[in-house]
């Protein structure tokens, strides 16, 4: 009887949580689809070439607002590298693509708290730049670039 009650309670709580989360997930998917369709995905390599710091800031900004599968960031990063864009900028783009989510911010705020979501994304924005410089520096030290 007690086990049955626990199962029923858990199921009720799960359905309740799921019903609360569902509009957020559907809204996120709709918003992401709209952004991907309306805004062009291609970013010109010509935007870069203003020094490592400015390029890293540009890379991390693009990665932060970008939506889509991380695979798309590899394709874009690979093309940018081939186009002569520096490793720091490309790494900043790759890291921010998977750690910062401006488009996901409303959903993250609603479920985990506004202050947490904003702080986490701001911290991730800056750590993406730090990781970009450290990765390039480490590879240089190892003689890999």
């Amino acid at each position: 009887m007690q086990t049955e009650n626990r199962l029923t309670n858990s199921l009720y709580k799960t359905i309740n949580s799921f019903v609360n989360v569902l509009p957020i997930i559907i809204g996120m998917l709709l918003a992401t689809s709209l952004v991907i369709t309306v805004f062009p995905e291609q970013i010109s390599a010509g935007l870069f070439g203003n020094g490592d710091i400015l390029d890293a800031l540009l890379g991390v900004s693009i990665g932060s607002i970008a939506v889509g599968h991380p695979l798309a960031s590899y394709l874009l990063g690979g093309e940018l590298l081939r186009g002569g864009v520096g490793l720091v900028a490309v790494t900043a783009l790759l890291v921010s693509w998977v750690t910062v989510g401006i488009v996901q911010l409303p959903a993250e705020s609603l479920l985990l708290g506004g202050r947490f979501a904003i702080t986490r994304n701001v911290v991730c924005f800056f750590t993406a730049i730090i990781i970009a410089f450290m990765t390039a520096f480490t590879l240089q030290l190892l003689g890999m670039v």
Binding site: Y74, G77, L87, R120, V123, I130, M134, M144
Partner: peptide
Amino acid sequence: YFGIAYTLVLCMYLVLFAGINGILV
């Protein structure tokens, strides 16, 4: 796309910064 050395170094930093990020947040 980026080579094995790049992938290993980047992943190492991502794991390290996962913890640092948590502490900072």
